[in-house]
Design a protein around this nucleic acid. Structure first.
Lengths: 156, 156
DNA sequence: TTCATTTCTTAATCTACATTAATGCACCGC
DNA sequence: GCGGTGCATTAATGTAGATTAAGAAATGAA
């Protein structure tokens, strides 16, 4: 746990970093963001005074997000301490991971890509629920899901 | 903390409920979902065996999500116990709230509505960051944000 | 089984937002 | 000051996915 003074534009965390930290903003403004395959930037969150920014992946996994300073800022850096966490907190952290990934997909992937990702991540669910629910989860209509699946068939 | 046996289609939580619980799925499949102003259903998450479903709002606030059973399921219901949580866990819970709201907005609101919500929720941030970053946060292009703002001006 | 209801698919049309491109501005550093 | 680079705005055109509509297939109740 240490205090940092960061200049506007300074990057605190890169995508791919491991053993990433948690940042608590004392003054100024940070943001976390991702960059998609087309090079397009998507801001995940802004963190003004009092907020916490972090990549919600396991401490030893590669970060999905960049974190940098939008304004000159004072920041406290802390380790992701799993030790202090109770039995249920692990479930909370897991939930954060899932929600972060969900936002990333919604912001930076097409319907086709979201479907691919869904099938890979939840192969059993695909079998167990009606198509219209999968469409609803993906944020598209059942009609659009039908065409997505048709396109996938054509491609092989 | 009690065990529940729920039938397919049974609703465990309604939007607007207060003092909502946390559900841990032992078998079967639950889902959480929202219904927008147009009556359209958007699935927020699926929760198969081993998962946890809950509305990530404070225990005493009105729930944003419905929770029901997609299959006959066995579920453990627990209270949202803030007591056991450490100093930092509150920040995690707060984060969950923000991410849940963000997903709801991304799935069920138009660019204009997301902008309105952003301005209301983060009025100071609007002043402090360049337009292109707001666009990036909202998931639209700076060009689209320009037209959104123009339309807002016309409307008053 | 049979009938009714819901779900899935296909196709035609529509629309919100993206892309492209051009112009005017602000903010640099020299 | 002046030239450059990036930012915001406007407008024209393009496109992913929504909407509408209709028929086919699956599901479920009596």
């Amino acid at each position: 746990m240490k205090k940092l003074s960061v200049k506007k534009g300074q990057i605190l965390q890169h995508k791919g970093d491991i053993n990433t930290k948690v940042y608590i903003v004392k003054s100024g403004l940070l943001r976390s963001y991702m960059i998609d395959e087309k090079g397009k930037e998507h801001i995940f969150m802004f963190a003004p005074e009092g907020w916490l920014v972090a990549d919600s992946t396991p401490p030893d996994a590669a970060a999905e997000l960049f974190i940098d300073a939008v304004e000159d800022s004072l920041v406290v850096e802390k380790a992701k301490d799993i030790a202090t966490e109770g039995h249920d907190s692990q479930k909370l952290i897991n939930r954060l991971q899932v929600l972060q990934k969900r936002i990333i997909m919604l912001m930076s992937a097409s319907a086709i890509e979201r479907y691919e990702h869904f099938v890979e991540t939840y192969p059993d669910i695909v079998q167990r629920v009606p198509q219209r629910m999968i469409a609803s989860y993906l944020g598209i209509t059942p009609e659009a899901l039908s065409t997505v699946k048709r396109q996938r068939l054509k491609e092989r």
